[in-house]
């Protein structure tokens, strides 16, 4: 049986609901942090509307609050977003038949969360004809939810002096833990995670989140080196 556009869309929304539990407090803390670190409410919401990249926005606001130069913030955002190149490359074969009016919004709305559910769905058996509607459902829910919780955070952040005391930023940590751990299926992947984590911890005192860039590069290098030493690793779909 072929699922039609409407069923695919609803299935995409449904599959993404669990991930909103992590995204909601994360969006809220972003909104609150943005206004308490000196952004105007309009720019805080604007960043969610036009950039739409949770981790990058979070890091961007932190750097902005620390008085970091604009080009450095943009460069850091770029490195943090490089992982989307893998997501896009993984999904590209499934969506390349689509016209531009589909590809541009789907590209803009690509997130860690939607990638996880959409890539899984494309790997399921069955007729993939309308699966871009699943992607659309997932992406739209992520986007609207992110806008809503950013707004809630902006309002809360304007009213409450120190929103970081709630510890809601832990939502980002635990969401990313839940996404990383299941992808560690072999030694190169473990090496990449451990190397990136250790370097990030040691390099934390470096200014401008430079440690983040360094750690990401070391992690990728560790993965590639361990993979080369072990010879061929069975091709696996990530994550």
């Amino acid at each position: 049986m072929t699922a039609g556009p409407r069923q695919e869309f609803i299935a995409g929304v449904r599959a993404t609901i669990p991930l909103e539990i992590g995204a909601a407090p994360f969006g809220m803390i972003f909104g609150a942090l943005a206004v308490t670190s000196g952004m105007t409410p309009a720019a805080a919401q604007g960043m969610s509307l036009f950039v739409f990249a949770g981790a990058s926005q979070f890091i961007g606001v932190n750097l902005l609050a620390a008085g970091t130069a604009l080009p450095v913030i943009v460069l850091t955002t770029f490195v943090v977003n490089l992982r989307h190149a893998l997501y896009a490359a993984t999904l590209a074969p499934h969506v390349r038949h689509l016209p531009q009016r589909w590809l541009m919004p789907l590209g803009f709305w690509l997130t860690d969360e939607s990638f996880v559910v959409v890539a899984n769905h494309y790997n399921e058996p069955g007729d993939p004809r309308y699966r871009h509607w699943f992607y659309l459902g997932s992406a739209l829910l992520m986007y609207l939810n992110w806008q809503l919780w950013t707004l809630v955070g902006i309002i809360a952040g304007s009213a409450i002096p120190d929103p970081t005391r709630w510890g809601l930023d832990f939502a980002m940590v635990v969401t990313f833990i839940g996404m990383i751990i299941p992808t560690i299926k072999n030694r190169p992947m473990l090496a990449a995670v451990v190397a990136a984590g250790v370097v990030a911890a040691l390099a934390n005192p470096l200014p401008n989140k430079f440690g983040l860039i360094l750690a990401a590069l070391c992690g990728v290098a560790a993965g590639v080196i361990v993979e080369a030493r072990r010879g061929e690793v069975k091709p696996e779909t990530t994550p």
Binding site: V80, P188, M189, A196, A200, G219, P239
Partner: peptide
């Protein structure tokens, strides 16, 4: 290796 490395580094 980019996604797990970046996420771990964050």
């Amino acid at each position: 290796y980019v996604p797990p490395a970046v996420l771990a580094a964050i």
